[in-house]
Design a protein around this nucleic acid. Structure first.
Ligand code: MN
Ligand code: MN
Ligand code: ZN
Ligand code: ZN
Lengths: 154, 154
DNA sequence: TTTGATAATGATAACCGTTATCATTATTGT
DNA sequence: ACAATAATGATAACGGTTATCATTATCAAA
């Protein structure tokens, strides 16, 4: 946490930007909360800590954090972009429960290897990829889901 | 083509819907043209064949065709949804060139098998998945790209 | 073939997440 | 403390999609 702030401050110095209390608050909330938040979800959490912070600042800070490499933008086609912290996390893909909205993070070196092979076979140069698998999570199948996430729209 | 129309008419009868000249025209254009079109791109093509057809009809017809299983909606996070014909095509995923906007369709039973294994391991029940790999296609690497597709916005 | 119930259409307004604008405030190197 | 300028907050604008509604077209039944 302290470490994260320092890394961000380094990035800010490099880019001639400025560290602000708003950015501090927003990063704190991002780290404190479950990932894959929409701008609006994060905005509500930020407002509880500091009601003076505006929506635009949250939106702009999320762009800033994506540029800095601290966050990734995740688009699951449910109407708005989501953001997750990636510093300190391995690359991963997602199982997404259509009932409770839960994200299950998956990583398989085996899978990545085959993807890389396919890319190579087409002479393609990959920059990024995303794999999203939609369905029903094990908890929702048993009606035992305790997730407080709102179900995904659609 | 004649076959496709018949299958759609069957679906329409089952659902108590109606076959119209507009739907005929729109389906013709979808089959005649490259896939992964936005609503607006399809609208422009449709208008050349019949300028009296409105944008809303194209948009609504695309939804209808998705419901019917004739089209899939493809979201590559470039600002608008795209649609592709899937009847008569195997399931596939996409390599997407960020330079020229080209879609390269890939299918690997090996890959699908590993995905299925991961899903099983989490007790997840899959309904759909999508894998999108972004980068630069082989033609664009050599500046030989002949694709008339507009580069993807970003 | 006419008819009646109602699905579909076209024009356009509304919607909604995101981005741009702009006057004001805050940060940072000097 | 100061000057340069990045960041902020309120809100308008933007753009793709969807809703509205009066009118027209479809199609099964008579
Ligand atoms: Mn994740
Ligand atoms: Mn395709
Ligand atoms: Zn669930
Ligand atoms: Zn290309």
């Amino acid at each position: 946490m302290k470490d994260v702030t320092e890394k961000l401050k380094e990035y800010i110095r490099r880019k001639n930007l400025r560290w602000t209390g708003q950015r501090q608050t927003i990063v704190e909330q991002l780290l404190r909360t479950r990932q894959h938040l929409t701008t609006d979800e994060l905005f509500r959490k930020v407002q509880k800590q500091d009601p003076s912070i505006g929506y635009a600042t949250v939106a702009r800070t999320l762009h800033f954090l994506v540029d800095a490499g601290f966050c990734d933008q995740v688009d699951i086609s449910d109407g708005s972009m989501r953001y997750e912290v990636v510093w300190g996390h391995e690359h991963h893909d997602h199982l997404i429960c259509s009932v409770c909205g839960k994200f299950i993070e998956i990583f398989s070196p085996e899978l990545e290897k085959i993807q890389a092979k396919l890319v190579r076979q087409h002479g393609f140069i990959e920059t990024t990829h995303k794999l999203q698998i939609f369905g029903t999570c094990i908890d929702c199948q048993k009606n035992l889901c305790r997730t407080e996430n709102k179900p995904l729209a659609k």
